[in-house]
C-alpha cells in the first residue's frame, strides 16, 4: 500500500517535472497515435511493420538532425531536400558509371553534401544573405544540377552497395541503426560540448552571444556545414535502400524535415529544440503515413488527414502545457 503510494507519488513528481518539456509532449502524441493504430488494426504492432516504418522515416529523421541544429541557431535550411537528392545521385554515378569503390562513392556523396553545406554557410555569413533566401537559392541550384547531370534518367546502384540500406542486424534494418547512432552522437554534441551550447546561445540571442565573445559566424558556418553533411549521409543511405538514385529524390522534403523539427518542439525563432524531439517529430509523420495505408484510408484523403492530425496533436500539446503553467 505504502509502496504503491510512493511509486505513484514518484510517477507524479516525474510527470510534473516532464510536463513542461516539449519533447515529452511529442512522445505522448506518438504514443497516443500508436495506441490508436494498435487498437484499429492488428497489422500495426508487428515487428516487421514497426521496423519498416522506422526505416521509412529514418531518412527524413537523419536530415532533421542537421535541420534541428540550424533551427536552434535561429536559421533555416531549405536546401536539404536537394542536397539529399544530389548526394545520393553523385554516389550512384560514381559507383555505376565511374566504377568507384564503395567507400570512395560514399565519401564522395558525403563530401559533396558537406560542400553544399559550406556554400550555404558562406552565403549566409560572408555575403550576409538571409538564410531563407540563401538556402532557397541553393535548393534550386542543387536540384537543377541533379537534373543537369542525369537528364532525368534514374541511376541504379550495385547490389553489394545496396546491402548497406537493405540489410538487417537481427530484426533491425541498418538505416534505423545509422539514425540512432547519429542521433546519440549529435545529442551529446549539442548538450555536452561547448560548441553545442553555443548553437543554443546564438539562437537565443545573437547579439548577446557576440558580445560575450562567441564567434557567431563560425558557429553558423558549422551548423550549415553539418546540415549539408547529414543530408548527404541520408542521401547516400537512401539510394542503397532503394537500389536506385533519381534526380527527383527528396523533392519537397525540406517541408517534411522542417515540420519534423518544429513538431519536435523546436521554435522557428531559435534557441529551442532537441534532437530527440526532431526524431520523434519525423516518427509521428512516418507512423501516420503507415497507419493510413494499413487502415486502407483512401489516398484521396490521406494528405488532408495527415495535416489535420498534426494540427490537432500540436494544439492538444499546447493546451496541456498551457494549463500547467
Amino acid at each position: 500500500m505504502t509502496t504503491g503510494n510512493t511509486t505513484l507519488t514518484g510517477i507524479l513528481t516525474w510527470y510534473r517535472r516532464q510536463a513542461k518539456s516539449s519533447t515529452f509532449g511529442v512522445a505522448l502524441i506518438l504514443l497516443a497515435l500508436c495506441i490508436v493504430l494498435a487498437l484499429s488494426t492488428d497489422r500495426f504492432l508487428t515487428q516487421t511493420n514497426l521496423f519498416s516504418v522506422m526505416r521509412a522515416f529514418s531518412f527524413i529523421a537523419i536530415i532533421a538532425i542537421g535541420e534541428c541544429m540550424v533551427i536552434i541557431s535561429g536559421g533555416v535550411d531549405l536546401s536539404v531536400g536537394s542536397i539529399f537528392g544530389f548526394s545520393g545521385l553523385i554516389t550512384a554515378i560514381a559507383l555505376n558509371r565511374w566504377s568507384w569503390s564503395i567507400p570512395g562513392g560514399i565519401a564522395l556523396g558525403m563530401a559533396v553534401g558537406t560542400g553544399f553545406g559550406m556554400v550555404n554557410g558562406t552565403l549566409i555569413t560572408r555575403l550576409r544573405i538571409p538564410p531563407f533566401i540563401a538556402t532557397l537559392g541553393m535548393l534550386s541550384v542543387v536540384r537543377g544540377l541533379a537534373y543537369a547531370i542525369t537528364s532525368g534518367y534514374p541511376v541504379r546502384t550495385p547490389s553489394p552497395y545496396n546491402v548497406l540500406g537493405q540489410g538487417y542486424l537481427g530484426p533491425v534494418p541498418y538505416p534505423v541503426i545509422y539514425m540512432a547512432a547519429l542521433a546519440v552522437v549529435f545529442s551529446v554534441f549539442l548538450k555536452k560540448t561547448v560548441q553545442g551550447r553555443r548553437i543554443y546561445a546564438i539562437g537565443g540571442n545573437e547579439q548577446a552571444s557576440a558580445i560575450s565573445g562567441i564567434r557567431v559566424n563560425r558557429v553558423k558556418m558549422l551548423v550549415y556545414t553539418l546540415a549539408g553533411l547529414l543530408a548527404g549521409i541520408s542521401g547516400v543511405i537512401s539510394i542503397a535502400r532503394l537500389g536506385v538514385a533519381q534526380s527527383t529524390a527528396g523533392l519537397g522534403w525540406e517541408l517534411d524535415v522542417v515540420a519534423a523539427v518544429i513538431i519536435g518542439g523546436a521554435s522557428l525563432s531559435g534557441g529551442k529544440g532537441t534532437i530527440l524531439g526532431a526524431i520523434l517529430g519525423a516518427a509521428i509523420m512516418g507512423v501516420l503515413r503507415n497507419g493510413l495505408v494499413l487502415l486502407n484510408v483512401s489516398p484521396y484523403w490521406q494528405q488532408a488527414v495527415i495535416g489535420l492530425v498534426i494540427i490537432i496533436a500540436i494544439a492538444a500539446d499546447q493546451m496541456r502545457r498551457g494549463s500547467d503553467q
Partner: peptide, 20 residues
C-alpha cells in the same frame, strides 16, 4: 494506393500494403 509519381513512395506503399 498512391505513390505520388515517386519511386521511393511507390516502393514504400507497395511494401506496406502487401505486408498488411
Amino acid at each position: 494506393q498512391a505513390g505520388e509519381d515517386d519511386i521511393d513512395r511507390s516502393v514504400q506503399v507497395i511494401e506496406d500494403y502487401t505486408e498488411a
